[in-house]
């Protein structure tokens, strides 16, 4: 079972798109790829106040990811704790992963010519820190959740 997930508290989210830039700045990504995104629904009036729902999406880190087996160089790896990541040494930038993913999550980094995707900032997680988007969320709306099986 996946150990982690990122949860968005929609009540605190102000749609400032900070997380998207926190991610890019941390991964040193050029203009182009965007590994997480904030979206919102069409406004509807609730108790005479127009409201919208914010959603956050990065990678779903599927239990059985389609992107991993299709990789010709075995660069797409699912770790024990559930994190699906790309071994940048092995990646050849063929983007077969993006084709296999139902949401086209992996993207090409035009600077390196290799695929990139959200890996929950696993270097930070392994150092006992939280992903960049969560750590720096402008309103502390994003949470990095360690999941527990409820018996």
């Amino acid at each position: 079972m996946n150990k982690y997930m990122i949860y968005l508290n929609g009540k605190r989210c102000i749609g400032c798109h900070g997380c998207e830039v926190h991610c890019k700045a941390n991964k040193n990504l050029p203009v182009g790829p965007q590994l997480c995104e904030i979206d919102h629904s069409v406004m509807v009036k609730i108790k005479s106040v127009p409201k919208t729902e914010f959603t956050f999406r990065s990678c779903y880190h599927c239990e059985e990811p389609f992107c991993a087996p299709i990789c010709p160089t075995n660069a797409m790896i699912k770790r024990e704790d559930g994190i699906v990541y790309i071994d940048q040494e092995k990646c050849i930038g063929c983007m077969a992963c993006a084709g296999a993913c139902p949401w086209t999550i992996p993207q090409l980094n035009p600077e390196t010519g290799k695929a990139v995707k959200c890996d929950y900032c696993m270097d930070r997680v392994d150092a006992g820190l939280r992903p960049a988007c969560v750590t720096k969320c402008t309103t502390h709306a994003l949470k990095f959740v360690i999941m527990q099986e409820v018996v």
């Binding site: 900070g18 830039v21 700045a25 402008t138």
Partner: peptide
């Protein structure tokens, strides 16, 4: 390599502009 809001005052929070400073 890393830029964040001061943990002692705003709990690490930073906005998109803040993270785009190095760019």
């Amino acid at each position: 390599t890393w830029i964040e809001g001061n943990q002692h005052l705003i709990g690490g929070a930073l906005c998109a502009k803040g993270s785009a400073g190095p760019a």
